[in-house]
């Protein structure tokens, strides 16, 4: 059974009151997520990530298509007792304390009364808010609200957790904690579907990522798969007043900054390049294999189409 099975889900909005214009928020999306997987949904702001999540949560209704969550139709209310959701930049009832808020959400999720309060405290401890449990949320900082948001998403022990930009607005410490939390969830066997526009997060956490832009899915795959196209090249950095002629003959892409030069050559020509350095008595500083990063993939694939044509790939 798939955790999430999205079958050509599609959403467009009508804009304007008198003269209707159609705005496509999500082109038909087909995507399946395995149980126990950590899936990163990548894309720039406004690409359709939040729309997808809202569709799956039943907050907006699809123009066409359907989805199955944990084997059930997505508009089956029962599904949602096994799903946790953290919206982007969450905001909660100002006048409630963190503990009251989690209690309220516990009731709404149908958690049994007897272990609700112990579960709430456990969750507050887990996100590091137990000391502020009795403080009204209007006195919370943005980072603390994000933690409350995480706590409410996993409070009822869901099998599947949706996190919309869980790391945004957090300081480096906070980001690391969220990463750790996602990893813990992964170890507990839960499925995590999170959206982000920050690549390093996805790179560090995800089994697979999907890349979306302008409402369209551009590619899905393991991070390694997507970045594997690094066809064995190395970057050689050395100190030199000028780049030797011989490097150009090797077909290297080289650059000189001050008296530090860098050159990228294919694996096959690595020995020849080093031979040139020895011959010219130039000092080698470093030699690193070039692995195409997710970022490069991202930049290459998500550049506006006309730009890419101009480059002439």
């Amino acid at each position: 059974m798939f955790a999430i099975e999205i079958l050509d889900l599609e959403k467009s909005y009508q804009l304007g009151f008198w003269r209707k214009r159609k705005k496509v928020a999500l082109r038909p999306l087909r995507l399946t997520i395995e149980e126990g997987e950590v899936f990163g949904f990548l894309g720039p702001n406004g690409a359709g990530k939040t729309t997808t999540l809202k569709l799956l949560m039943g907050l907006v209704f699809p123009t066409a298509g359907s989805a199955r969550i944990l084997g059930k139709s997505m508009d089956d209310p029962q599904v949602r007792s096994q799903v946790g959701f953290l919206p982007e930049q969450p905001y909660f009832y100002d006048h409630l304390t963190a503990r009251e808020l989690l209690n309220y959400y516990g009731q709404l999720s149908g958690m049994p009364v007897k272990d609700r309060s112990s579960k709430v405290d456990q969750m507050l401890t887990r996100v590091g808010l137990i000391d502020s449990a009795g403080v009204q949320l209007r006195k919370f900082s943005k980072g603390m609200l994000q933690r409350v948001g995480l706590a409410q998403a996993i409070l009822h022990d869901p099998k599947l957790v949706f996190l919309d930009e869980p790391m945004s607005g957090l300081d480096p410490m906070g980001r690391r904690e969220v990463r750790e939390l996602i990893q813990q969830l992964h170890h507990e066997g839960k499925t995590v579907f999170f959206s982000t526009h920050i690549l390093s997060d996805a790179e560090a956490l995800c089994d697979r990522v999907g890349v979306i832009s302008q409402g369209q899915l551009r590619g899905v795959g393991a991070v390694a798969e997507l970045t594997a196209q690094a066809q064995g090249r190395v970057e050689i950095i050395f100190s030199a007043a000028k780049i030797p002629e011989a490097f150009t003959q090797l077909g290297a892409e080289s650059r000189l900054r001050g008296d530090i030069a860098s050159a990228v050559v294919s694996d096959a020509k690595q020995e020849a390049a080093l031979e040139i350095l020895r011959r010219e008595r130039l000092r080698l500083i470093s030699l690193t294999p070039v692995r195409k990063s997710l970022e490069e993939y991202y930049v290459q694939n998500l550049q506006p189409a006309e730009n890419r044509k101009g480059v002439g790939v």
Partner: peptide, 12 residues
Amino acid sequence: KRTLYTVLSRPV
């Protein structure tokens, strides 16, 4: 304030 999201994403 999007508080509704966290309510309606539950079995409500």
